[in-house]
Amino acid sequence: MFPSSLRRRDLGAAALGGLTGGLTAASPAWSQRAAAAVAPPAADVVLAARHRRVFAGLAARIDAQLTDVQSVVVQHRGQPAFDWFRSGTTADTLHDVQSVTKSVLALLFGQAMADGLVRGPDELVALRLPAMLRLGADARVQRLRFAHLLTMTAGWPPDEIARPGRDDDLRWLVRRPFVAEPGTRFAYDNGAANLLALGLAQAVGEPLANYARRRLFQPLGIGRLAWRRGAQGHALGAIGLSLTTPAMARLGELVLHEGQWQGRSLVPRAYVQDLARRHSSGGPPLSTAYGYLWWLGAGSVMASGYGGQWIHVDPALDLVVALTSRRTPESAARGQGATLIRRDIVPAVRRLQRAGQ
């Protein structure tokens, strides 16, 4: 279940263009939704007709007015509700999802917990990467726990810059100067996510991309993806994943159903609940609350990537939106993807809910 503090908190960040502020204030238990009976085929047909009605004209609006947006997939009540792909893009097109990679990394950590390969967020990072203690780093690296990396509270300053030669360089990552004690201050830090990826790869005992394909993506039916490596040959944690838009939606569905997929537990339910819990008030770039590498709105959980890459999960509406955009400074500033979710998709689904349909 979404914590009550999340359900009632209107975080309405300017960077989101108000995306979080207009969402519903009450969310039912996720566990009740995950256990709900599958609607009979006749109900599916009726729901599909209602989706067509509430989303009528949306494709034309995106095509003409939201030119940054490249693809959209909407799942409502477990059913396809709307999809749209700009000319030259299809459901099979891979999109560089930027920092959505971080949120997928958080799911992988939960998968590794289920496999017994990590004990949990409270485990010391140095137990998996003992070399970091021999690199002449600040003594605070000895106290770093995976929870600090998952919540962006490691103690390093904010860093949103990709550094192709250093992103997976353990020495460079851990020798950066600390500005706070671990666990005391939020700072959105690509280096922390990249360090998490290195530690998790060590824990699972194989390249992280291989583990992800075998234990997370394949069970979800996701076969088409790419994961960029750094200069040292390791999968990056801050950025680097390329996914199709339907694959992004499936990851959102996994979060919506608390790590359960087709009767199988992929990620521990308690971990996904903790992932969606407010661990800090967050800060830039979205300036909204933060869980485990997922941003939190008023009743929503979001993966966000530079330029307008989104996985938006709203349990109260039984809604998942996956959306990609052009990756440019201009598209990041315009925020058309966030606008589309806030002004068009969420209100359309809410109208169905208010009608009791």
Score class of each variant (00 low, 15 high):
202 Q>P: 00
7 R>C: 15
304 S>W: 14
247 A>L: 03
198 L>V: 00
175 R>M: 02
306 Y>A: 09
38 V>M: 10
146 F>C: 09
213 R>K: 02
234 H>S: 10
111 Q>N: 08
227 W>H: 00
214 R>K: 13
220 L>F: 05
112 A>M: 08
347 P>Q: 04
155 G>L: 11
197 A>I: 08
90 T>Y: 07
235 A>G: 12
138 D>I: 11
38 V>G: 08
157 P>V: 03
356 G>P: 00
99 S>Y: 04
312 H>D: 11
61 R>L: 15
352 L>C: 09
42 A>Q: 14
59 A>C: 10
119 R>T: 00
157 P>E: 02
243 L>E: 05
140 R>A: 15
60 A>S: 14
109 F>S: 12
213 R>F: 14
84 W>E: 07
208 L>E: 08
265 S>F: 06
176 R>W: 06
54 V>T: 05
312 H>T: 01
323 L>F: 04
23 L>P: 00
350 R>G: 13
298 A>C: 09
145 R>T: 05
346 V>A: 06
73 V>L: 11
69 V>P: 10
259 G>T: 03
43 A>P: 00
325 S>E: 03
282 G>A: 04
184 T>R: 15
139 A>I: 09
31 S>P: 00
27 S>N: 15
191 G>W: 04
216 L>P: 04
228 R>L: 12
133 L>F: 03
352 L>W: 02
172 W>F: 14
242 S>P: 00
241 L>S: 07
10 D>H: 12
126 A>V: 05
327 R>M: 14
43 A>Y: 05
60 A>W: 03
40 P>I: 07
75 Q>R: 15
125 V>K: 06
77 R>P: 03
98 Q>L: 12
288 T>A: 15
